[in-house]
Write a protein that binds this DNA or RNA. Sequence first.
DNA 1: GGAGCTTGAATTGTATACGATTTTAGGATA
DNA 2: TATCCTAAAATCGTATACAATTCAAGCTCC
Lengths: 248, 248
Amino acid sequence: MFQVMTSLAPHPPHRPRAAAPVHARLRDRIVRGRLPPGTRVTEAGIAEDLGVSRTPVREAMHRLVRDGLLVPVDGHGGGRTRLAVAPMDPATLDQLYRIAGVLEGLAGRAAAALPAGRRATLARRLQGAERAFRATAARRPLDYDRLFERHDAFHRTLVDATAGAELKAQLDVIRPRVDRYEWYYAPLVGPDFTATYREHAAIIQAVRSGTPETIERAVRANWVRGAARMVRALAAAGRQRSPASASS
Amino acid sequence: MFQVMTSLAPHPPHRPRAAAPVHARLRDRIVRGRLPPGTRVTEAGIAEDLGVSRTPVREAMHRLVRDGLLVPVDGHGGGRTRLAVAPMDPATLDQLYRIAGVLEGLAGRAAAALPAGRRATLARRLQGAERAFRATAARRPLDYDRLFERHDAFHRTLVDATAGAELKAQLDVIRPRVDRYEWYYAPLVGPDFTATYREHAAIIQAVRSGTPETIERAVRANWVRGAARMVRALAAAGRQRSPASASS
DNA sequence: GGAGCTTGAATTGTATACGATTTTAGGATA
DNA sequence: TATCCTAAAATCGTATACAATTCAAGCTCC
């Protein structure tokens, strides 16, 4: 009887839309690593933690399963589904980034069909987003939180201007997972981002005056090569840790 | 007290997994057109109709929103979300098919990386699926239900053999919507499917001995041209109905 | 001392009660 | 007759109760 409204509004006996905030908070916790891969998550636990009943938590957890951030765990044959934070591995990373690449590539193609004025505007906006990204990447100490936002903003600028509602929705489905890998492993890839600069510049140039194929190729290359960089950095970090773990 | 167990098992007081069947049944009703676009759907109505409580219905409806088969309707500013069966229009059709094209194209690329034996097996299986498709398409009267299954089987054969789990999941997200358009408009496109035969043959040939790019192009062309055929047939049907509606 | 069984705790899935807000129908009035 | 106001119905979001199943620990028996 005492855990009601421990977290939100002052006293309203009715809190509309608790499910959305719960989903957002849980998603962020997973994406930012506060809930590491493999962590078991229970409805009652989260409900008590966030001060709401199981109902909205349940809804949020089902959405997170669809987002690919929670996965059913255990064989436990015909029983109910126990959930845990989805694992992370290089193979999944590669798949995810290729998917993001073809989807965003498809969005990019549409830039070539834009009227000249809007196309130029888009190129200018991308240039601005890229300038902000580079500025943040050049700062020391490196603020990876802000850098993540800037990088996201660059890609969103392109997608918002070119993708239809269906494509945006489709991109929204994988974005949380992609974001999680970005959040975890960007520090391993940095602090040198010249390869990213080059690829972003190619995208901007293609948007400015390229064919649909040129734009698509540039966008896809950025994602595929980004994944490769990340996998390489991951393997390097693993090699570094490997001997240490053998000695201890 | 009397509407309990009006529909399912003999007497089990507990029906595990009511949500999944509800989702499946509702999805099929929408895909097959028994719930036409624009139909308003309420939790209580479906619950009574299927003989379960609102809870699993609510879960199913939320999934259907994510599937894009139900959409929030009405402005009604800050209120709750009223749901209706999503509308259908040529622009959405085009977007969806392009998305399916790039995703399945990405899957197809992986066929080129298969060991020679499995690659040949896949080509043979595709050939078999295509043969079954053509046989069904040649029968009169045309059984569009069966034809739908055969067509689906061809594409599934490719995807199952080449796509990773992430890509399959991504394809599952748009499949219901694509299926709905197929179901509604395939009869308008038929009964001549020679263009589809040609494109499928190109896919099989590319899978047999093409480069990743060749395969991807063939798969994408099939989807993009399929959408174009459907939009054209739709416009033709509209032109036919248009004068009639003006006269009546 | 070890293996199998039994009981209890934990957890999910479903049903239902309740509150709040929007929509809509009906009536009164200008 | 049209419009505005009022009240009731409809509907969604949340909380909670209950059923059922699984997992684990402890106990008994060989």
